[in-house]
Structures are given as structure tokens and as C-alpha cells.
């Protein structure tokens, strides 16, 4: 199969390319997909990985033999919320 060019974007929100991921793996030597996410911000943008999660999982499998497809963490809020709304929701919480 044709190899993806290094310039292909994997995470649209943060604009992270395959080349950047390769470089991060080489220079910073993360040992897990979670560490790779932390050093690159892969999947940590506006959509919260809603779009790129399958891409990130395939990278994890290829680079870390990480086959735990389901174990990438999910964070709240699952949708972007303005800080004001967040505080208001907390006030409304009985």
C-alpha cells in the first residue's frame, strides 16, 4: 500500500502531521500512546478526538503495538463549554 506522506495531517484540530508524530517518537521517545498524546497534543483539540480517534488508535497499534483500542481516556466536557457556562452549571447543581 502507498505510504502516507509525512505531511498528512492526523489530527485536524491541532494540525498535527504524521511527520511531527514520527519526529516526536524519535526525539522524545514516548513509551505509550498516552505519552505520545501528551507530547504532541494529538487528539486534544476542539473535537476532543471525536474525528481522529480511529486514526490515533491505528498509530498506537503501529508504533507501540498498543492494541487496547478501548482504553484511551475520555474527558469531560465531551463538548467544548465556555467557562461561564461551566460555572453556571455548577451553581445550578443541587
Amino acid at each position: 500500500m502507498p505510504t502516507h506522506n509525512d505531511e498528512v495531517i492526523l489530527c485536524r484540530c491541532e494540525g498535527i502531521t504524521l511527520g511531527q508524530v514520527r519526529a516526536a517518537v524519535q526525539q522524545l521517545q514516548p513509551t505509550s500512546l498516552r505519552e505520545l498524546k501528551l507530547v504532541t497534543r494529538l487528539g486534544m483539540g476542539m473535537c476532543q478526538g471525536r474525528v481522529c480517534r480511529p486514526i490515533i488508535q491505528s498509530v498506537g497499534q503501529a508504533m507501540f503495538q498498543d492494541r487496547s483500542e478501548t482504553r484511551l481516556a475520555y474527558q469531560i466536557p465531551t463538548r467544548p463549554v465556555s467557562f461561564g457556562d461551566f460555572v453556571k452549571a455548577d451553581d445550578d447543581y443541587e
Binding site: 500500500m1 504524521l18 491505528s58 497499534q61 503501529a62
Partner: peptide, 13 residues
């Protein structure tokens, strides 16, 4: 869909 050794979302051809 294309794929590669690093990114393989839908599998080989």
C-alpha cells in the same frame, strides 16, 4: 483508501 505502516485506519487493500 490509502494506508501505510504507521496509519492504517481501514486496513490493507
Amino acid at each position: 483508501a490509502p494506508g501505510s505502516e504507521n496509519v492504517d485506519v481501514v486496513g490493507s487493500l
